[in-house]
Simulated assay, not measured.
Amino acid sequence: MNELLPFLGYCALMSGTPGPNNMMLVASGAHHGYRRTLPTIFGMNVGNAVQTFITCLGLGALFVAWPLLHSALRLAGTLYLLVLAWRLAGSPAATDRPPQRVSFTEAALMQAVNPKSWVRAVTIASVFMPPGWSVPAGALFVSAVGAVIGFPCVSMWALFGVGIGRWLSSPARRRVFNAIMAASLALLAVLLLN
């Protein structure tokens, strides 16, 4: 229990603090509602779980051995987040339409280029793997627990978006909201690059 509580706290902190995933969930919740955002939430959780599992099996060692690989992944992640920010902002002719929802698959695959997700996975692999367990069993355990803890934390961001969505009934407010969320996502992308 002494080892489990810090791990649970870390998972809640990493899932509940602002980041690219949560900014997308606020926007999706605001525009599409909670129920239609669930595939994105599940995709993020599955992507994080798979990423954590693979990292615990040894992928994190590649980043230590080849820091250039980590830098390339960070750059790819930044570029992808900037594309998502552009998509969220919408084209000038279509700013009155809600942005397209991020699918389960897109959300899951996004974790591969999300720097915050990599930090989370590498930290879990290096700090929170259960001692005395086989590597596959420990990796499966921490991945599953991370997904279970992550679901309600990221759901709160989508529900926050749902609450804001009621305010977004006018096209002018929706344009301002999309611009703010897109700028926030772009800023996070640039900050994660450093």
Rank of each mutant, 00 (worst) to 15 (best):
Asn194Trp: 12
Leu4Tyr: 04
Ser15Pro: 00
Phe104Asp: 09
Arg35Asp: 10
Leu81Cys: 13
Ser169Val: 14
Gly9Pro: 00
Ala27His: 02
Ser126Arg: 02
Ala85Asn: 09
Leu79Trp: 09
Arg175Tyr: 10
Ser28Thr: 06
Ala158His: 13
Gln51Ile: 11
His31Tyr: 10
Gly163Leu: 03
Val50Cys: 12
Leu75Trp: 02
Leu73His: 06
Pro98Thr: 02
Leu68Arg: 02
Val64Gln: 14
Ile149Arg: 00
Ala139Gln: 10
Leu25Phe: 07
Ala139Met: 09
Gly58Asn: 11
Val102Met: 15
Pro39Ile: 02
Phe63Met: 12
Met24Lys: 04
Pro92Tyr: 00
Pro39Val: 04
Arg175Glu: 06
Glu3Ile: 13
Leu168Thr: 09
Arg101Ala: 15
Ala49Phe: 06
Ala186Trp: 09
Leu4Thr: 08
Ala76Asp: 05
Ser71Pro: 02
Ser103Ala: 07
Ala12Ser: 10
Leu187Cys: 09
Phe141Asn: 05
Leu168Glu: 08
Trp66Tyr: 15
Pro20Phe: 09
Ala144Pro: 02
Ala179Ser: 12
Trp66His: 14
Ser155Glu: 12
Met110Pro: 07
Ser155Leu: 13
Val26Ile: 15
Gly43Glu: 13
Phe42Lys: 01
Met14Ser: 08
Trp133Ala: 10
Leu140Trp: 10
Trp157Val: 14
Leu4Pro: 00
Ala89Pro: 07
Thr105Ser: 15
Pro171Cys: 07
Asn22Ser: 06
Ser143Arg: 05
Phe128Ser: 00
Gly16Cys: 00
Ala27Glu: 09
Ala108Ser: 12
Met1Cys: 05
Pro98Phe: 04
Ser91Ala: 10
Thr40Asp: 13
Asn114Leu: 04
Arg97Ser: 15
Ser170Cys: 10
Leu109Asp: 01
Pro152His: 08
Gly43His: 09
Leu73Asp: 08
Met110Lys: 05
Ser170Lys: 07
Asn48Ala: 13
Leu88Met: 13
Val135Thr: 15
Ala144Met: 08
Asn178Ala: 06
Cys11His: 03
Pro171His: 03
Gly29His: 01
Ala139Gly: 10
Ile164Val: 11
Asp96Gly: 01
Pro130Tyr: 09
Gly77Arg: 00
Pro115Lys: 00
Cys153Ala: 05
Glu106Asp: 15
Leu159Lys: 04
Phe151Gln: 11
Arg173Ile: 05
Val145Ser: 11
Gly9Glu: 01
Ala27Ser: 15
Val46Gly: 03
Gly16Asn: 00
Leu75Cys: 02
Gly60Glu: 08
Thr40Trp: 12
His70Trp: 14
Gly9Met: 04
Gly150Pro: 14
Ala183Gly: 14
Val176Glu: 06
Leu73Gly: 10
Thr55Ile: 07
Leu5Cys: 11
Ser126Glu: 13
Asn194Gly: 13
Ser117Thr: 12
Ala107Asn: 04
Ala182Gly: 01
Gly138Leu: 06
Gln100Asn: 05
Asn21Leu: 00
Ala72Val: 14
Pro130Cys: 04
Leu185Ala: 01
Ile180Asp: 07
Pro39Tyr: 06
Arg97Val: 13
Gly146Trp: 00
Leu159Pro: 03
Gly150Ala: 11
Thr105Lys: 12
Val148His: 06
Gly43Trp: 12
Thr95Phe: 07
Gly29Cys: 01
Ala89Lys: 09
Pro67Glu: 14
Leu8Pro: 08
Pro136Ile: 00
Leu193Trp: 15
Val113Thr: 10
Arg174Ile: 04
Leu5Gln: 13
Met156Lys: 05
Ala30Pro: 08
Ala144Tyr: 08
His32Asn: 03
Ala12Thr: 08
